[in-house]
Nucleic acid binder design. Structure first.
Lengths: 197, 197
DNA sequence: ACCACCATGTAACAAGTTACATGATTAA
DNA sequence: TTAATCATGTAACTTGTTACATGGTGGT
């Protein structure tokens, strides 16, 4: 017991990742594998965490699935959200939101960076800049696809695309800020190659 | 066994938080309680995680402590890093850096925001903006304290303050970007009070 | 030949959170 | 009087990661 307890005391306790999966399914039907890939930019999770959660959501009847046979690839379960799942999302959105948490080893290393030598520091920041530039390329590509919709319906908060659109704007703005920071730090460290694309 | 294994196979496995604590101690002597408070902006951790790690670091002789008696407050252990601890930091900095991870429930809610109503959405983003503005106030204050050093020695990467300085610049830049994003979203949602300080 | 991708799942472990425990001081 | 801050620690729990398990297809 303890799990699907709708008996008494309100809704069953789901963790944030479980709601994230419901959020994905609110737009399209997806396999567990696809959900794992799509949730990465917002919440890092491995398949080993997702599959048991989907089983739990299914027990709660927040999701349903059909098995699709594929000849070339393994069979897959395509999940769809139920009306009860949609209701659960609405309750969740209105509930207080947890503070964001970020864990970045680079920041800890940066704090005591003077213990290191300049070439090591430069390498560290150049590598991180690479990572941010790759991310920017990805987000730019996604934003480009959204902007193909000439009606600009994504600007309306009632639109299906609105959520994705404002998330992309945030992701792009933050990643730009981070790239600029990397370039600025590299210049301070005396890296003459800093600032070039 | 298994823990302080310097016997064979390289350095003992410490997690990122443990190195973060060493990073803090590389600048000043601190109690476990103070470390818990100081590490928050870079890595969220509760005291229940920190105290056992400090005991482990002490077994490895990367840190040492003295007990300070206080009349008004409880006694405390003031930790200091050892030479072996400094060496461990240097090895850690040169090693590959893990990719940053962030987990923000607001982003998941944002993805399926159209399932909610405008007042709920506006409340959500106004609350988040508040949080970012409070953070900005804190970082601005810290940056102001740093800038009291008129010699601007913090601009040199050999300076004791350099690490803190560049971290603050990043924190301020990112928080500004986030505030702008909140204001922009609130305007799109039709919130007329958006954009006022 | 080996690795990556697709696709699902479980088991073992590490990391992180909440709760239990104690106890004084100070501000609302 | 209720809560917050200082200060340390452990126990129980949840969350997240790595490893084990299986197996076909396609690229280098």
């Amino acid at each position: 017991m303890r799990d699907g307890n709708t008996e008494r005391g309100g809704p069953p306790e789901l963790n944030t990742l479980a709601y994230g999966l419901l959020a994905l399914l609110s737009k399209e039907r997806l396999s567990g594998y696809d959900m794992m890939l799509r949730i990465q930019p917002f919440w890092q999770a491995k398949h080993s965490q997702i599959y048991p959660l989907l089983a739990k959501l299914e027990r709660l009847e927040y999701v349903r699935y059909n098995v699709y046979r594929q000849d070339d690839k393994p069979d897959k379960k395509i999940y769809a959200i139920t009306d009860a799942g949609i209701d659960a999302i609405r309750v969740w959105i209105a509930a207080p939101t947890a503070e964001p948490a970020s864990r970045d080893e680079l920041l800890l290393k940066t704090y005591c960076i003077r213990l290191s030598d300049a070439p090591t520091m430069i390498r560290m920041f150049a590598e991180r800049e690479r990572l941010y530039r790759d991310k920017r390329a990805l987000y730019d590509k996604m934003a480009g696809e959204l902007r193909e919709d000439k009606s600009e319906s994504y600007l309306a908060h009632t639109s299906d695309q609105f959520g994705k659109f404002i998330l992309l704007q945030k992701a792009i703005a933050v990643v730009r800020t981070n790239i600029e920071w990397c370039v600025w730090v590299r210049k301070l460290l005396g890296d003459e190659t800093a600032g070039e694309t």
